[in-house]
Structures are given as C-alpha cells and as structure tokens.
Computed example of a mutant assay.
Amino acid sequence: MRAPIGDFDNARPAPEVLDQLATPVAAAVRGWEGPVPADQLLYVDTDPEKADTAVFAETYGKDLLETSANCVVVAAKQGGVRTLAGCVVLSSARLDVNGAVRRGLGARKVSFAPHETAVGETGMEYGGITPIGLPADWPLLLDAETAALPWVLIGSGSRRGKLIVPGKALATLPGATVVEGLGLRG
C-alpha cells in the first residue's frame, strides 16, 4: 500500500506489524479504541541512519518537512511534585517549553526530561519516542497544528520505522489536550 504522505511504497496497517513496534506502542495499537480505526494507523519501514530531519525529508519526501511531528518528554515541577508529560509539535517548529508547555501543565518550572528518564519511563528508543503508547497517566500536550493535519508522521517507539496517522487520532489519546501555540516557528 502506498502511504498518504511521503515517498513510501511499504505502508502497512500497524495492527499487522505489531512485532515492528516498541512494546508499549504495540500494546496501545492492540488495545486501540476511538473514532479512528486502528487500521488507519500506518507503519512505514525507514532507515534509522537517515533519521535526521533534513536527511529524512530528502530520502522519503519533502512534504514530510511540514507533516512530521516530534514527541518530546518534559519534566514539570509544581509544589515539589515532578510530573512527566509528552508534548507533540511539528518538526518544523520548536516546543514553547517556558510558555505554552508550562501553562498547559500548570507548572512553575518545565524542562526537557533527561535522555535516560525519557527512554526508561517510556520503554521506547530515543529518537523514536511517540505519543502512542506513552504511560496513560501522563499529560499529553498536542500542538493544534499537528492535530489539524489530515496525516502526520510520528515515531514508532524505535528509531527504525515510523507511523503515519490522522492528526485527529492523536487528540483521542489518553491524557491528550490540544494546545494552540505549543510550537513556535522561526
């Protein structure tokens, strides 16, 4: 099957390739519920050596520069309590950590979670972390631009392979809140 975005000829419904997904991502796909059917979550095989955004777009399609999103794990502190959260923002934008993220989480201080924490707490590989399969009790802030896309390319939980999903599917994930201005341009 041809993918709806990018230059991928090998798109397959994610429920058919659970063995290619990180364990928490496979579990989330297996238990998928909501208005978007699980077979609309598409998996495409990609070369982990070409994961850098510019090289990735050159290899798999220039349209991916505006249709790819990153899932960033942040640590928020408020009243001595630390909370981990996922934030999804277009790859062409940078995450507004000190503004929209801080306000969205109601935190006094927010920072990027350390590499070891992000990997250890998600059960996913760094560079492949995705909102699908994050711990269900985590807040998930989703940039409004990403949620509005017909199709968005996100991680699969590992550096090899990506998921292409309808943007509206991300808004139905556990703990998801759509936030205007989560991503800053320029």
Rank of each mutant, 00 (worst) to 15 (best):
D47G: 07
E49D: 15
I5T: 13
N10F: 03
A69C: 13
P4S: 02
P37M: 06
V36K: 05
L42H: 05
Q20H: 02
R82W: 11
G6V: 08
A75E: 14
R82H: 13
D19F: 01
L84I: 14
F8Q: 07
V81T: 15
L42P: 10
K77N: 05
R82G: 09
Q78E: 14
A27R: 10
L65T: 13
K50I: 11
K62C: 03
L18H: 05
S68P: 08
F56Q: 04
P13W: 01
G61K: 03
V17L: 08
A11L: 10
A28F: 01
W32K: 00
T83I: 12
L42T: 07
A75D: 08
C71G: 04
V17P: 04
A76G: 10
P24D: 03
W32R: 04
P37A: 00
Q40D: 14
L64V: 00
P24C: 07
V81E: 15
Y60H: 12
D47P: 11
A69K: 10
G34W: 03
R30Q: 12
G79T: 07
Y43W: 12
E33H: 11
D19Q: 03
D7V: 12
Q20C: 14
N10H: 12
P4V: 01
E49A: 13
V72S: 03
F8H: 07
V17D: 00
R12P: 08
V72D: 02
P35S: 11
A22V: 11
G61T: 05
L64F: 08
P24A: 01
V17G: 00
P48R: 03
Q40M: 04
E33C: 08
A51M: 08
P24Q: 04
A54C: 09
P48N: 03
V55D: 12
V55Y: 06
A51H: 11
Y60I: 12
Q20E: 14
D52N: 10
A27W: 00
A26T: 03
K77F: 07
P15R: 00
D39W: 09
A26D: 01
A69V: 10
L41P: 10
V25R: 02
G6A: 13
V74G: 03
C71T: 15
V29H: 06
D45N: 13
V81M: 11
G79V: 06
G79I: 04
E58D: 14
A51P: 05
L64C: 11
E33F: 05
W32M: 04
S68G: 12
G6H: 07
S68V: 03
E66C: 07
L84R: 02
W32V: 02
L64H: 05
V72A: 10
E49Y: 09
C71S: 05
K50W: 08
R82K: 11
P13E: 01
N10K: 06
G31I: 04
G34H: 08
A26P: 06
R12Q: 13
G80T: 09
G6N: 12
F8S: 05
D47T: 08
D45M: 10
L65D: 11
L18S: 02
L18M: 13
G6W: 08
L42N: 08
T46K: 02
T53G: 00
V74S: 11
E66L: 15
